[in-house]
Structures are given as structure tokens and as C-alpha cells.
């Protein structure tokens, strides 16, 4: 059982319109952090600790990243070695 509920998050492609409407605020912050140049793994770890109060190697963190990856909202870019928010 995770400390957050991903079931209300829609299973549709991400748009900025959707990103603005998402809750909780920590989810918007995470996806916003994946914009610009993307999010290095260590910054994602920091964000998980500070914003989600979960350890990066915990089952909760795995579940969260999995929920975002399977929706195609946050993807790992091999070339830049960063997590990037993905639209459309």
C-alpha cells in the first residue's frame, strides 16, 4: 500500500492543460521538474525525499515512477541521462 493514490490520475497522454489540472501539487512539481533540461537522477531522488517523503529506493518510489512511466508522462532519456516530462 503506497502513501499516495495514483488511481485518480488519468490514463491519457500528457498535455500542459492536463499538467496544470493535476493534483496533488507534488505531482505537478515533479512533472514541471522534468521540463527544461530534464531531471538528473540525483535531483529526482532529492525531490522524492523532500516533496513525497519517500526514499528513492523504496517500493513507494518504484510505484510512483512506474505509474508515471506507464502513462508515458515521465521517461528516462538515455542520451542525456535525465528524466524528462513527455507530452502527446
Amino acid at each position: 500500500m503506497t502513501s499516495f493514490d495514483t488511481t485518480p490520475w488519468p490514463r491519457t497522454v500528457l498535455s500542459m492543460g492536463l499538467l496544470v489540472s493535476l493534483d496533488p501539487p507534488a505531482l505537478r512539481r515533479l512533472l514541471k521538474a522534468g521540463l527544461r533540461r530534464g531531471l538528473p537522477p540525483e535531483d529526482l531522488d532529492d525531490l522524492l525525499r523532500s516533496d513525497w517523503q519517500i526514499e528513492p529506493d523504496s517500493p513507494d518510489a518504484t510505484a510512483l515512477i512506474h505509474a508515471l512511466q506507464e502513462r508515458g508522462w515521465l521517461l528516462w532519456h538515455q542520451e542525456t541521462q535525465r528524466w524528462k516530462t513527455h507530452f502527446g
Binding site: M16, G17, K32, L35, R36
Partner: peptide, 10 residues
Amino acid sequence: NEETLLTTAI
């Protein structure tokens, strides 16, 4: 719109 939301966000 989508692009103004993006440019605001970044």
C-alpha cells in the same frame, strides 16, 4: 494555450 502554459512553466 499549450505553448503559453509551457513557457510559463519553464
